[in-house]
Nucleic acid binder design. Structure first.
Lengths: 212, 212, 212, 212
DNA sequence: AATGAATGAGTCTTCATTCAT
DNA sequence: GATGAATGAAGACTCATTCAT
């Protein structure tokens, strides 16, 4: 097995994410995924205990990926507006870069849940919730800092966070991979919009043109 | 038929919307809806040819309701920023007021669509698309006017429209009916954010407090 | 529909009992039963919520049938040995007469239980347990009376009841319908043996030849 | 290999018997057994060609164990009633002593047998049948001797043997290991009952207390 | 001897839909 | 208008078994 080759699990995850993102979780049968994989149901069930576990694994991966892309900008020592803009931009880039995984997350945002839940699934769900909290807290923290410094408007933080994040998710619904420039442009525009949504007018000027 | 009583169709629609919104379209069987209605499947099939038709009827109702609430503000003779803010606010109020119906729309935003499609369904889908275009065009029009007048930043309109609308949909995921004031506050905050997302800094001040 | 015709539920029950008795519950698929019925799985699931429910319904029917056959002899005003003998005989006749139903009961005596249990199933199980207790109590009562009157040996009642009942179940394993005389002979022999198993020697003589 | 340690095969057999006895043969997967063993399926398949073979091995072991315990009393030079009582007692002790193995036998008494049968399995089945015949013949022989001597009632031997053996199996369904005395008491009571079931009244007195 | 991956056939169950009444 | 019975297609999941290592 060459080094570049993925082992079974990630390959299954990829195929599942793609299928789920394309046709929807409920409209995708395990058989569909197996076919896309050139394998049989059994293979999938050998690695994931249930469909729910598969979905959870994808969700966790998605959140982790986003966290990995955004964290560095959060750690950076920059003033809140600039930091916020960079984080928003990174978020959009994440959305666009691993479209399939993030689509699944958004679809499952309802709360899901047929009935039976595996133990491993329950475990995964807890981990996902933890990661999501960690992620939202980063934004909450920048926003709080911005409000404290007078750069951001003083609004209900919970509403703010959940709302602009929704906006940054938007490309998930309509983005079609065409070229990197295009995607960067989208990321910048959405980051601009997000900053505009939270900042006081005058503050915005300092980062309105990201390439300055 | 007394005036206070709804006829069968709207009652079915309400029950379906609620069930779909709560458990998801795919997780809701016609039987579930029938039970919530205190009736049997047959009754539903007398009024709607298929599950898909039911979903479409809900979607159309949702779009129509939103259109009805937002149009008046679009027709008004107000400058772009003020008009945009009012329309956004009305949009959020719509989302919150008929939560169940709009949730279904968002869930179905993926596009999906299984296989067999009734003729009536096809017809409904066309009507929905038309209404949605009409709706988006209103926003597109205000935005264009705002850009022309120098009040709004000059950005890719398609991206803009689809993005802030997504943000205005946000309450669908987390709003819990508690009281009217609360909902009004949310609507105002989101409209503020949406305006900030599209306008140039200085413009915003003129409408920050819509009721002034 | 003629009067003699059974409605769907009993017919399904019969087919299921026969199939379960022949190949074992676990080796019989719902499909098998449906085929034997000349129908489809759906029909069965329309009348019984799950395989477990079907099994429970059969078990309940079995216990009820036995109870119905044995009760009259329990109610009769006869001395313990004679009463016991008659009840035992009736029990064996029941076993032989509705072989299939009773076979299922014996097979499920382990305690069964995969995992998920319907509510209706839970309900049925309670009813079954109640009927079984009622049934065992009849025998327990005759035995106690017999011991009190000095006709029966004083032994651990729980052990006694569960043991000779097991013996009376025996035909379930090997009886093949051939003719009524044969079956009556078996019933008499087993009742004799059961009485011998519980009575004092001298008592037995009074009823050893039931036709006397 | 140290003396205290069992080699692989018996250990697998024990684990399988326990699992089969607890959850039923059909409800127990090879994986379950492997887990109980702290090993993997492969290990089991190295020692037993198929699940059926495993079941047969357990059954054979069960019959052999019973035979070993009962034979000595059959070989002894004692009058039929005493001999029969001793054999019955030994049978019950066997049931209780290796509960798990014997439970499997009883469960499989239906005969069933799915489809594909290994050669080794066919071979095992023949051996089992032979051992079982040998075992039943011992009882048949004592019974015949007893009838000839006038101690036992003259009844259909086949019915008799299969019936009281069923009664002697009873503890399999409800015995819970608590203490040796208890189990001995049960064995004695059941042997008494069995003797009562086959003997003429007056005969019984001579062996009512086997250890006297 | 033992493992982990993979298979494929089978099983229970659900559900949109149709139809006679 | 409405119901209850019935269907058939599909889907999630299980498991005995095989095989390369």
């Amino acid at each position: 097995m060459s080094l570049g080759a993925k082992s079974a699990k990630p390959r299954i995850l990829d195929a599942a994410a793609t299928a789920f993102a394309t046709h929807g979780v409920d409209q995708t049968s395990i058989d569909n995924i197996a076919q896309a994989l050139g394998a049989t149901k059994g293979k999938i069930y050998h690695h994931f205990g249930s469909k729910g576990e598969l979905v959870c694994a994808i969700r966790k991966h998605s959140v982790q990926l986003t966290l990995d892309r955004v964290s560095p900008y959060f750690e950076a020592d920059t003033p809140p507006p600039k930091k916020f803009h960079a984080m928003a931009e990174a978020h959009v880039v994440a959305m666009i870069s691993e479209l399939a995984y993030h689509r699944v997350v958004v679809e499952e945002m309802r709360g899901s849940g047929t009935g039976s839940v595996t133990d491993s699934e329950r475990q995964l769900r807890l981990e996902i919730t933890a990661l999501q909290s960690e992620y939202e807290d980063m934004f909450r923290s920048v926003l709080a800092a911005g409000i404290a410094s007078g750069a951001f408007r003083d609004q209900d933080l919970s509403v703010t966070v959940r709302s602009f994040l929704m906006m940054l998710h938007a490309p998930i619904y309509w983005y079609q991979p065409r070229g990197p420039q295009n995607s960067q442009a989208i990321a910048t525009q959405l980051a601009d919009m997000a900053l505009g949504a939270v900042a006081f007018p005058h503050t915005k000027n300092s980062v309105a043109t990201p390439g300055e």
